[in-house]
Design a protein around this nucleic acid. Structure first.
Lengths: 245, 245
DNA sequence: TCGTCAATATCGTTTGACGATTTGATCAGA
DNA sequence: TCTGATCAAATCGTCAAACGATATTGACGA
């Protein structure tokens, strides 16, 4: 049975299509950055599955780049925690067990709350308010659409808008380095619709508090959002997490 | 589609190993990792100065590695914010202006406070307590010695001990990705002795609260420490920061 | 059935090469 | 003299090929 599963993974690897050139990509991007972007996008869209083994020869063929550039990309992604490198064994898409997920939430929460507070403090102009509201509207639209990649993209866009509004560059640098995208991509595939809805509904109060310019309320809204996520986590069965052997 | 992805997760579970890196120091370091370590250490010792331009030919000669490996290292360091890469212009050791420094403190503070709380909660055994006390003793010794590299090293070791004790792996991953080392290395060269002493004295109460197993007090001690650092920052003249051209 | 050992696949690293871009100096003209 | 264009050198981004090192796999024999 192990063999069969392995074969299925192999099939998925070989039949996976290269992510077509992103229409929004700028020409200023280097090849290695484009590859990194392709992989992160592939995780969002489900082309790459958490835990999947990435083979250098395969990736170089599919992405049409040299091995050196690919390895630079993998180094970059490894530093961001998206892939893990095992010496002489290659790269794997990151995989979070239950403990790692809870620790991720503990780490991310204070950063997200800081981001919300800063955003609320700086949300004075109508332009800023509309940016948050637009991001929220897009997120709600994506939630209704049921398209997983679209939802994950909008969710990240909402965070980006919030962080950008706050104006703290270091925060903007660090938050994406937490493995939130990985966590979301992994959970998104296993949670129920009601859990998904619960999670998505948490962004409304956050946006409202930010637009109202109320840092304290924004902070609390984010805290509540994280508490809800922890609740969802506690409801998920053990078998969706990798087993440590 | 979501169903399919779920199935993929299940398959990945059975066929892929949990990417679990060995937390302790492993000697199976690759050359690129060693180079990255050499550069960060070089920053601590003052061999590399913030803002310095790193030339690939020079570094390959000096470090005795190939260009490919060096570039992988630089990619890793860039992801960690230690160096910044400019297309066709090369790599520069990161440089923080006053605003970036304050934003760095704002971002790092909640993480450090979380680390202190977790450490205090888990500091039940005598072994754990002695580890913190040893780290503090080494830090105080380094402070008295006046050796800058030694002090920066001990300071990081103290943080590492605290983070390790807390047991949150994600926090352990994210905190080094903030550019604290860069900030410290930059400030260390310009602050006065009284400022240096003030900063170093902040670690005593933190360690004491952790050893006492008092999360709340540890949290407050870290907050005070950061407030002191902000005060030091406000006392530093503008001319020590890079001028934005 | 289980352990041993060779074959294979993949990774880590080096070397060399080529075009693309920036940089700095040179030089002509106002 | 100053200004601007021109050109050569330096450096970077990328590719290709190769070699040893290591892990994985599968066959073989006890």
């Amino acid at each position: 049975m192990i063999k069969a599963a392995t074969k299925k993974i192999a099939e998925a690897e070989t039949t996976t299509q290269v992510a077509q050139e992103t229409p929004t990509s700028t020409d200023n991007e280097s090849a290695t950055d484009k590859v990194a972007e392709a992989i992160t996008q592939g995780i969002r869209t489900g082309i790459f599955v958490p835990g999947q083994h990435l083979l250098e020869p395969d990736l170089t063929r599919r992405l049409g780049i040299s091995r050196g550039s690919l390895r630079e990309s993998l180094k970059h992604l490894a530093a961001a925690g998206i892939v893990t490198l095992n010496r002489y064994r290659g790269a794997y898409i990151g995989l979070l067990d239950r403990t790692a997920t809870l620790q991720l939430l503990d780490t991310l929460e204070p950063l997200a709350r800081l981001a919300a507070r800063l955003a609320a403090e700086n949300c004075k102009t109508p332009a800023a308010q509309s940016k948050i509201e637009h991001a929220l509207a897009a997120l709600e639209r994506a939630t209704r659409s049921g398209n997983r990649a679209h939802y994950l993209e909008s969710r990240r866009a909402f965070y980006d808008a919030m962080i950008d509004l706050g104006g703290n560059r270091e925060l903007a640098r660090v938050i994406p380095l937490s493995r939130t995208d990985l966590f979301r991509a992994q959970i998104e595939t296993v949670q129920s619709d009601v859990q998904r809805k619960r999670h998505a509904s948490g962004y409304g109060p956050i946006a409202k508090a930010i637009v109202a310019g109320d840092p304290k309320k924004a902070d609390m809204a984010v805290k509540k959002h994280f508490d809800g996520t922890r609740k969802t986590m506690s409801e998920l069965p053990d078998n969706i997490f990798p087993t440590m052997t």
